[in-house]
Design a protein around this nucleic acid. Structure first.
Length: 441
DNA sequence: TCTGGGGTCCTAGGACCC
DNA sequence: TCTGGGGTCCTAGGACCC
């Protein structure tokens, strides 16, 4: 058995913990650059604000409907997430942290008839100890646990189609076949984890609208007509587990640092400044997980929304001679790519750096890829050691004093217009001494 | 005027091998 | 004029997730 624990409207709920005046009122948290709504309170949803709605289209609701819009504060959300996960972990012996606001819990060894009561206790503990409202779904597969969680959330806020008794905590294992059949018939196929808009539309044109319809299909047909991925979902919905709990995720296989610009960027120096920053940050992430990269990808593009601008988008992949974790080598490769990519008179609105072909820095089994080079000898061991000490020092300064305390030259070469707009960010209540809230007795 | 960021997995097709 | 069969590895692109 699996449980899925999920914080409701997570970013909004984190803000409300420290600003109780936002309780019961429409609230959205905006994406970077205060671009669009990426989290909405129930009251904001009731105003008809869609996920991803551009801020400039909903701004008027601040005056007319009491809407509050906040910039993202990932430091706060990350810390609140850690606290929620610690409490959620008490539900069972194993935990997979699936995203910032949800985790799977492996429930093996726990008596089936105690599961629902146990989940209710965890639900209340998370609410009481962290202030985050949450829902818990339980099922014999991960997909069914996700589905149970979806039902628990929906039943909590709407009277239809699910009975209110399933609100907040929903346990498939505690239901009889008739009850399950009712829920499968009432749930749209697109609400299932792993079935996105594309596949849902294709299924609907074949007359498959509900989960019940989908379960009627033949597994082989599903695989042939769609994919092995969808067949997995089919088995999981039938109660046959295919997806394991992954409680020890390995290092990431790719690392990205990309940003939209607050204002369009046209000059090469400014773009080089941005790319240098992005590559520096990506290299920092790379070292934090003790990896090295063998491919640096740089892209830049115009806005898909601005009509009248000449559309332009290019991606350049640069393979490296040998894997590295050195910021200077990664920035160097990225800037060479930028020279090939750059065109004047283009209004760039988004750019990024991706690191691919990641390997473990200290992998003992395999010998590292070496350079075949006649002229210059390979870097000496002492050079490598010095280089690593330099990177360690850079990371220590970034971690202690912040990114941008020490930077490579190209990052400074332009008056930086590209940093993000974040006009309305809340304090880092839980992670910065000066931001800790005061309780006046 | 103003529209996010960071991931994973699978598959088809090309390059290359013997 | 006529030109095999069976593999692996890599990459780009598409689908999905939060």
């Amino acid at each position: 058995m699996f449980a899925l624990v999920d914080g409701n409207n997570f970013y909004c709920s984190c803000e409300r913990v420290f600003q109780p005046r936002l309780q019961g009122r429409p609230l959205v948290v905006l994406s970077n650059n205060d671009g669009c709504a990426i989290a909405r309170s129930e009251e904001a949803k009731a105003l008809g604000i869609a996920m991803g709605a551009p801020y400039f289209q909903i701004k008027h609701l601040e005056k007319t409907a009491g809407l509050t819009a906040l910039s993202t504060n990932f430091t706060l959300y990350g810390d609140m997430s850690n606290r929620m996960m610690e409490v959620a972990a008490l539900l069972g012996p194993e935990q997979e942290i699936y995203s910032i606001d949800e985790c799977f819990i492996g429930l093996h060894g726990i008596a089936a008839d105690t599961l629902t009561a146990r989940a209710w206790r965890t639900h209340r503990q998370i609410a009481q100890w962290t202030g985050i409202p949450n829902c818990i779904g339980i099922g014999p597969t991960k997909t069914l646990a996700k589905l149970a969680n979806h039902i628990a959330k929906t039943a909590d806020r709407k009277p239809k189609p699910y009975p209110h008794i399933l609100a907040k905590v929903c346990n498939f294992a505690a239901m009889n076949e008739q009850q399950k059949a009712y829920l499968f018939a009432k749930t749209a196929i697109g609400d299932v984890w792993g079935i996105g808009r594309r596949i849902a539309r294709q299924l609907q044109t074949e007359g498959v609208c509900s989960i019940a319809d989908f379960l009627q299909l033949n597994a082989a047909t599903v695989r042939k007509r769609w994919s092995v991925v969808l067949e997995t979902t089919w088995h999981e919905l039938h109660g046959q587990p295919c997806l394991q709990l992954d409680n020890q995720p390995g290092p990431k296989q790719q690392i990205a640092f990309t940003r939209s610009f607050g204002q369009p960027v046209t000059s090469q120096a400014e773009l080089a400044s941005a790319i240098t920053t992005f590559a520096t940050r990506a290299a920092h992430k790379l070292r934090q997980q003790h990896s090295q990269t063998s491919q640096v990808v740089v892209f830049a593009r115009t806005s898909p929304f601005r009509q009248g601008d000449t559309p332009y988008a290019r991606t350049i992949v640069t393979p490296l001679l040998s894997p590295t974790n050195d910021t200077r080598a990664i920035v160097g490769a990225a800037l060479v790519a930028l020279q090939q990519l750059y065109r004047p008179h283009i209004r760039y609105c988004k750019a990024g750096v991706l690191l691919l072909g990641l390997t473990e820095r200290y992998a003992s089994q395999s010998a590292p890829q070496m350079e075949l080079e006649w002229e210059a000898p390979l870097e000496s061991t002492s050079q490598k050691a010095r280089q690593q000490r330099l990177m360690t020092a850079l990371d220590a300064m970034a971690n202690r004093f912040g990114h941008g305390t020490v930077v490579l030259g190209p990052q400074l070469s332009a008056n930086q217009q590209w940093p993000m707009r974040q006009a309305r960010q809340s304090p880092c209540y839980t992670t910065r001494l000066s931001d800790i809230p005061l309780a006046i007795m």
